[in-house]
Design a protein around this nucleic acid. Structure first.
Lengths: 247, 247
DNA sequence: CGACACATTGACCAGACTCAAAGCTAGTGG
DNA sequence: CCACTAGCTTTGAGTCTGGTCAATGTGTCG
């Protein structure tokens, strides 16, 4: 988790897409010609807000972001967490009004790509369109899995499940290994992501530590018993569709 | 709700896509050339199962379907309900292994379209690809909204919210009107969709009837007080992205 | 060395669950 | 055409997971 040098934005995108399928030279070059605007933001800072009609998509180069929605009486539901290589608002390319917000979790480096260029790219290169489409479909699969967790799993299982999911996602882009990964979110964030309260999250974490399943200190997670954690969380990684590990 | 004659499969697809954007003659003809296999199924019948690698997508011509996943100890989470015009497993075009199941709810008429023809269609016509992509993105938005409900809304709000959502979706394809629509699902289905138990659903429904918000009898829902139901359920239809009403 | 955000803990509470037993009702078959 | 049945709905009584409220630690950063 020592932060590797942040790659050039389009290089990161090429790498991400090539982890799924091979790109032709032409496709690779078309991606590399995309104009990007790089922006560095602090943590806890909105990128796009519920109701906005954005004109750019946002590629994460470094740091964490999350999608969330605010409800009445200060209630908040976090919908997803995103890491380097993700384009969390790719949907805005085809759905013009945001129905939720996107914010940084940590300090982050973002690349903004104009919709018009992405639209041109996908019109010219159906293969790239398919890959980006596929990306949004995997996102939808993760939404479904979260729904299953919130709807039908215990607090303990939900938290364990999230640990497994984030560890594998981070590992796939080389940001985790050796059962150790960054986990830069607060207990309130956990609660809002998993449909719990922060008080209850605290108690479950205490329990998990007691069972020597995990260590969680200064925003670093160590999974002390991976197989056991997967088992008690009923975690099955199929839904992440991580065909291969990109390094 | 009197069942109109079931239109030809490709006509239904053209109509659906044209409710979002205009198709060129060429695009329309390409869709109409799609080969389809029509199949009539009873209710409560699996169409595709968790783990399958389907080679067709399924367009619903008539009836209801749902996506669901089974967990240990007989737990089930229903992920979505689908009605005429939907292609609930469109994702299988780009994600080869099913991470959940798809089943009919009622007796249903389905049109199966081979992946290879859809892939060819989208490669040839980026505009159609964009429209289908958009469809899957709206699905994802509905998943997010369900997540919000299960995570942060009370049982009462969740049920009210689902009524509002299904009424508008049905109305958009001409299957509902006058605050009245079919609702062919059991209280157990409600429970499994909303992260509740059927006993509790039953009690909440009783409460809703008591407040004269709805009538629900023999699989027909009548919304007696639409504005009030929307208000108490905190329902905001933005996420459905129903740009216009198709008749 | 504050100050502030975050984590932890205790005491109490409630919305939703479990288990179990009756009622309904729409089909089915005789 | 009616009795039967399977599946669904309704209700009651008791329980529990997870929520609420509030106070007290703890760590980090200017």
């Amino acid at each position: 988790m020592p932060s590797a040098p942040i790659p050039h934005a389009t290089t990161m995108l090429v790498r991400k897409l090539e982890s799924i399928a091979t790109l032709s030279d032409e496709e690779r070059q078309a991606i590399e010609r995309l104009p990007v605007r790089i922006n560095r933001l602090d943590g806890r800072h909105d990128i796009v807000r519920d109701g906005d009609k954005p004109s750019h998509c946002c590629l994460i180069l470094d740091g964490w972001a999350c999608r969330y929605k605010l409800l009445s009486q200060g209630k908040r539901q976090i919908l997803s967490f995103h890491i380097a290589g993700d384009i969390p608002d790719l949907q805005s390319l085809h759905i013009h009004t945001m129905d939720h917000s996107l914010a940084t979790v940590t300090k982050a480096t973002l690349a903004f790509i104009p919709h018009e260029n992405l639209r041109e790219l996908t019109a010219q290169h159906p293969g790239i369109a398919a890959l980006l489409w596929r990306n949004t479909l995997i996102d939808a699969g993760i939404f479904r899995e979260w729904m299953i967790g919130i709807g039908r799993r215990s607090a303990f299982e939900r938290i364990g499940h999230l640990f497994c999911e984030m560890y594998l996602k981070l590992q796939a882009v080389g940001l985790a290994g050796d059962y150790r990964c960054p986990m830069p979110i607060t207990q309130t964030d956990f609660a809002d992501a998993l449909g719990l309260t922060s008080v209850h999250v605290n108690r479950v974490l205490k329990d998990m530590r007691g069972q020597t399943l995990i260590t969680l200190r200064s925003h670093t997670l160590v999974i002390e018993a991976w197989d056991e954690l997967m088992r008690v969380s009923e975690f099955d990684p199929t839904y992440l569709h991580l065909e291969q590990q990109a390094a």
